[in-house]
Design a protein around this nucleic acid. Sequence first.
DNA 1: ACCCGAGGATTGTTCAACAATCCTCAGATT
DNA 2: AATCTGAGGATTGTTGAACAATCCTCGGGT
Lengths: 233, 233
Amino acid sequence: MTVTEELVDRLVAFRSHVGRSSTAERVADVLRGQLIEGTLAPGARLSEEAIGSALGVSRNTLRESFRLLGHERLLVHEFNRGVFVAKPTADDVVDLYRARRPQELAALRAAEHAPDEAIARVGEALARGERAYGDGDWWGIGTENMRFHEAIAALAGSPRVDEFVRRLLAELRLVFHVMSVPREFHAPYLGRNREIYELLRAGRVEAAADHLAAYLDDAEHQLVEAFTTLDGR
Amino acid sequence: MTVTEELVDRLVAFRSHVGRSSTAERVADVLRGQLIEGTLAPGARLSEEAIGSALGVSRNTLRESFRLLGHERLLVHEFNRGVFVAKPTADDVVDLYRARRPQELAALRAAEHAPDEAIARVGEALARGERAYGDGDWWGIGTENMRFHEAIAALAGSPRVDEFVRRLLAELRLVFHVMSVPREFHAPYLGRNREIYELLRAGRVEAAADHLAAYLDDAEHQLVEAFTTLDGR
DNA sequence: ACCCGAGGATTGTTCAACAATCCTCAGATT
DNA sequence: AATCTGAGGATTGTTGAACAATCCTCGGGT
């Protein structure tokens, strides 16, 4: 392999960063950030006029962005009524866990064939989470916890699974906002993440999967519990 | 529960059929049909001008449709170049099976909690497939085989999983076209579908899952095989 | 308290226009 | 002959305005 061929190979990885020139996608990125950050409250209506002029894009372009986020279930589009920030219910929580559980568990069980690099990324997310804990950065803990599970799903080495799980976790963030989950919610799971990671690194993937299964059951239960007690909606 | 309340409950199920008033979605439906039917060859470029005027919709509306189908990976959108019918590779086949396997297997294993209605739907798809076989309707066999697996995934009772799997299977149809799979491809799997269904009905979900796992492995293998031998690309 | 309808606001869709980019292909260069 | 180059045309990206369709609000009437 020549030098230029090597360069070309390396450049291919950046293609996605270069190609994203579409305004609609950039707008979607901005809005997605505001959504998972919680700046836009669940249930709120997004006016085409207001947001379009605020971001300096035309209504047509903005509508393309809305479609993108609608397909990620972050926005719901009601015909002739407008788009609203999704407002997940307890049923959605159950569904989200039902959808992610098989993928994450399967990815973990297949981790023997995963490249070391992928396993390392799990550890990195965990480390960042623990650092955030040390700093008392509660929001950071949540973010890195999300990354941790993204990294676990990525062990399967499937772009489609990656995207699916990423979407589910983004939606889960909306759940945290709609029920204003306590800031310390994620902290207890940090220790369990470490256990799972250690088992994974030791090659004991079955034990790791069992741990994760219990983890997911507990988290789902806790969320549904909080939903049905604190909130009638 | 009063009579009208019962009626209302029944009507809710039709909401999705009523609300789809958007032209963009109707256009997407038409195009999706043509795509999985094979009328639009993989790799072909879809001109906004040509298709827009052919369907009598404006470019803006058509672009919304393109976005929808792009997110289903049936079309690929290349910036400033246009949209093309997706052209799956052998890697995509591997990925598609990697993504659907955990969901279908998990759904089958959890089938004990599935309502009888959902199990019945699996049987109906199977029956329709067998009828198509009797009629020598090869395309119908493929369609019903797809429905069969959709129904299996639906045993999980998760809308998100349903949508995910439906999307994967639609993409798989594109694979069949890009490699012009022989018309008898699906027939041998019909018998295995019945075995799986019988085990499912007998409540032997673990055995059914094992069967399905072998089924998926074989199908994936056969497709990848055909890809690497018949076709260089 | 409830029904009703007019008016205004918002969305759905189209059209036309222009900038930005890509593709083609003839001509020049080596 | 093969490759480079650039002009021109075609296509996409995005905008702005316009109008129809629909929804929401808010009085007035019963």
